[in-house]
Design a protein around this nucleic acid. Structure first.
Lengths: 330, 330
DNA sequence: CAAAAATTGATAAACGTTTGACAATTTAAA
DNA sequence: TTTAAATTGTCAAACGTTTATCAATTTTTG
């Protein structure tokens, strides 16, 4: 691996000059610049970023901590973040917390040891005070991690209302919500609040079936089948699209026609779902905008660690309407 | 951020001693070890890995280059790799090549500049000779990148035969294969070969519909609809599960009953598909084993850059049978 | 208690880069 | 041609850690 002094030697100039070319400071003639670039190219030279970082430059490394990229929503969010960050000349260290506290703690230590410039996290398994000792700026997706850590979310409350009101508009009267089982302070609980407020306004009872994020699909199917046969709701609102797919499946097994006998709305609206399950109505989170905003806020904090940011940023959601509900009430 | 000398000062020992504790060499009394660990803990100290790397230790960074984690197959593969690597105390730099040559070239440069210990790649957009100038060891998933870069694949040929023979066994006589449009030297073309050989053996004609990986789902639907109405095959074998879902969708729109009028087999068999589309028969790639093997080979090359490895490693596939084909011929 | 062994410290060089200070040389302007 | 400006070089320190060498001190052993 060629180093600075090799380039200098080949170009017949001093290392200082090469460094001046690379970092573009001091005064330089076109002729030397050309010579140096030629030598760099010939040796396929690239500055050792370990050495640069130690000297004082940023590592330009960003840690991304999410439960896991095999979940389509996080997969798309992580891919979007990575694409945008890499366009800004940042590199991404991927951390799959698998919702485990020890893992997450180890990742935070590791990221700091690697001198990351910043962290974006969509997981939360530690006590709030554990995030305080992290020097690197943190931006959070949809989790409350402490007073000085900005939360970026889509409008979960509006999403909950949007979904529920769509179901009401198409004539549903017994609407179940299948929610994840989240920490009480999680912004995603707002989806439940939106659902509850909508039904209260319509003078209808609420029915909540909480299924933990981590529950296996097989067990979820069992719980869903039980619920559908017991309560016989005429509509279900799921706080994620994958669970909505399970509901659709179980409904079919039970011989329930969608949307005639059971209307269905999901949540997240990834590209994958819109492309491959377009019949599923769902609340669409603006993944691109969320990524842009998180990156923008992080960069502000990277530039100035004390940058004053809001505690909470909320981006609007939209609705994708498929045949899992009726387009309009007949 | 505390540094070595801070720990030494707090513990009342020399930096040499602290370094000895951290790197566990030389002779040390229990008493000092305890003192030093206490100080490290108190200061929440972690060695600056930038400095360590510069000094000569490995960065323990592994570059992962894949088309993108929003694709469920790559998402699961990347997550599996990340989990296993992180258990071995490696960190992952994620690179989404989006199948673009310039992007991939830039990633390779960046990874080298960051002194990664190794690279695992599942993408291939450069000329073979461009990989030769990479110092870090490379292991490839399912692509031919050059003579000295081992390829890890699942048994694509067996997968193609397995799928086709399943369809034959259940009585299909007009079987279409929807393939990606790959480079001629790509191991994934073996799926096509397996399909062709199986049909030749059964004395049946082949029908291949190539749909590029990058084609949009909407355009794929159009092409599929065209093909199904023109040829009226009684079975379709897709070289990936997502395309199989599209075929299922289009068939339903055309009023074709699955499996009675159209049998369907996909490829990949991710957890996601098995959990959420269990009715889809599919050839299952052993993601965990693939990840284990790639990591094992990479570590051999990290330990010894000249380690002699095979050019090609092939792991067996299995079959997940769902209701998209008949369980047995009636 | 003396000798041997174990422990700890002080010092310095090295990893590859950046950058400041200042000197030397070349080029351009007057 | 003289002077000023632009260009390039030399030298050294710094980033935080590791590790070798050698010396000093403490502990253990016989």
């Amino acid at each position: 691996m060629a180093k600075l002094s090799d380039v200098a030697e080949l170009a017949g100039v001093s290392v200082t000059t090469v460094s001046r070319v690379i970092n573009n400071y001091g005064s330089l003639s076109e002729k030397t610049k050309t010579k140096v670039f030629a030598a760099m190219h010939k040796l396929n030279y690239q500055p050792n970023s370990v050495a640069r970082s130690l000297q004082g430059k940023s590592t330009r490394l960003i840690g991304l901590i999410f439960p896991g990229v095999s979940n389509p929503f996080f997969g798309e969010l992580v891919q979007t973040l990575e694409n945008k960050l890499s366009a800004l000349d940042y590199r991404v260290i991927l951390c799959n917390s698998v919702n485990n506290a020890d893992t997450e703690r180890a990742y935070l230590r590791m990221l700091q040891a690697n001198q990351v410039a910043g962290i974006i996290t969509g997981t939360h398994n530690l006590a709030i005070n554990e995030y305080k000792h992290v020097d690197a700026p943190i931006i959070s997706f949809d989790r409350h991690l402490g007073d000085n850590i900005p939360i970026v979310s889509s409008d979960n409350y509006a999403g909950g209302k949007l979904a529920t009101e769509l179901l009401l508009k198409t004539g549903a009267t017994c609407i179940t919500m299948i929610s994840g089982a989240n920490r009480p302070d999680s912004p995603t609980n707002q989806r439940l609040n939106g659902y509850q407020d909508s039904l209260k306004q319509a003078n209808l009872p609420t029915h909540v079936l909480p299924l933990p994020f981590s529950m296996s699909p097989t067990l979820k199917r069992v719980a869903i089948r039980q619920h559908l046969t017991d309560l016989k709701p005429d509509a279900v609102f799921c706080s994620d699209d994958l669970t909505a797919i399970l509901v659709g499946d179980v409904a079919q097994e039970l011989g329930l026609k969608i949307p005639e006998q059971l209307k269905l709305v999901g949540y997240d609206g990834t590209r994958l779902i819109q492309d491959y399950q377009p019949q599923l109505s769902t609340v669409v989170q603006p993944i691109g905008d969320l990524a842009d905003l998180m990156i923008q806020l992080l960069r502000q904090r990277i530039k100035d660690n004390k940058a004053v940011l809001q505690a909470q940023y909320t981006l609007p959601v939209s609705l994708h309407t498929g045949s899992s509900v009726l387009a309009t009430k007949a």
